[in-house]
């Protein structure tokens, strides 16, 4: 991080186990406002779990998390965060999933206004107006009244991005947003994410699109075995890796291309 600016997100020493499986072993990350941090790493290294801890879809067992001044400390014995605190945090942190998770029984526009109206209490008229703006921003102004099943994967993911943005989040989390897409649809989604980066949205994204990571990221973090093994500028991480594991990860990655 650039140092001067107060971080918008601090995750420190995060531990998370599922039963006997110790997945996160003290993972840490600090993010300054406007940063785009890309997380890379082998499958199973804990990237998704770490990301899901940041909006408390998973509750860590140790460490602490501070987002925009909201602070959560975790311990094995302590009480889990209260419902009201969870809900408040999630309203400030948008998340985009690999499999979109759109609500199939609602039209596109209703998917987008669901959060603002139901979770934030924004009047429907106002929420619709904002939603239509967002839809044109992601290039889907004409799809407001269709059901998600009528959309391509790329279109679904753009709607999912609009749905997250509708909450006016301070930070956006993306978990492999293009991994479920046909190759020809990847570009349109990455395009939308680049636009967001240009607008100054703070983002953390897990991706296997190394070229994209190099282009949009302020920093790239390499996760290995439940910790942040190395983090730095895209050039440092992708072209001058120090960590042995990172080197072999990148070699394997390039070999498979």
């Amino acid at each position: 991080m650039n140092g001067q600016q107060r971080p918008i997100l601090v995750a420190e020493g995060i531990h998370k186990s599922f039963g006997n499986l110790h997945v996160l072993k003290g993972a840490s990350l600090k993010v300054a406002p406007g940063e785009v941090v890309t997380l890379i790493g082998a499958s199973g290294s804990g990237k998704s779990t770490f990301l899901r801890c940041m909006n408390l879809l998973e509750t860590p067992q140790d460490g602490f998390l501070e987002i925009n001044g909201r602070r959560f400390g975790f311990s094995q014995t302590g009480a889990p965060p209260r419902d009201r605190e969870l809900v408040a945090l999630r309203r400030d942190v948008g998340m985009v999933f690999q499999h979109f998770n759109l609500f199939p029984h609602m039209k596109v526009i209703d998917n987008i206004i669901e959060g603002p109206v139901q979770a934030k209490g924004i009047p429907i008229g106002e929420a619709r107006e904002h939603a239509l703006d967002l839809l044109s921003k992601v290039g889907l102004a004409d799809k407001a009244d269709v059901f998600p099943s009528k959309l391509s994967g790329g279109q679904k993911q753009r709607v999912a991005i609009a749905r997250a943005l509708a909450m006016k989040p301070d930070i956006m989390l993306f978990d492999e947003p293009t991994s479920a897409l046909d190759p020809e649809l990847v570009g349109e989604v990455l395009g939308v994410i680049s636009d967001l980066a240009r607008d100054g949205m703070t983002m953390i994204l897990v991706t296997h699109e190394m070229g994209f990571a190099a282009d949009v990221s302020t920093r790239v973090g390499f996760m290995n075995n439940g910790v942040m093994a190395e983090i730095g500028t895209p050039d440092e991480i992708l072209h001058h890796p120090k960590n042995e594991r990172l080197r072999s990860f990148l070699n394997r990655f390039h070999a498979n291309r």
Binding site: N55, L57, D83, L86, V87, A88, R90, R91, G94, M95, F97, H99, N101, L102, F103, E114, G115, Q118, A119, K120, R163, A164, A166, M167
Partner: peptide, 17 residues
Amino acid sequence: DKGQWEAGRAIGMRRGK
């Protein structure tokens, strides 16, 4: 799909809703 619960939680909705 349990992704539907997660999507709801991710936009700050409460369980009941």
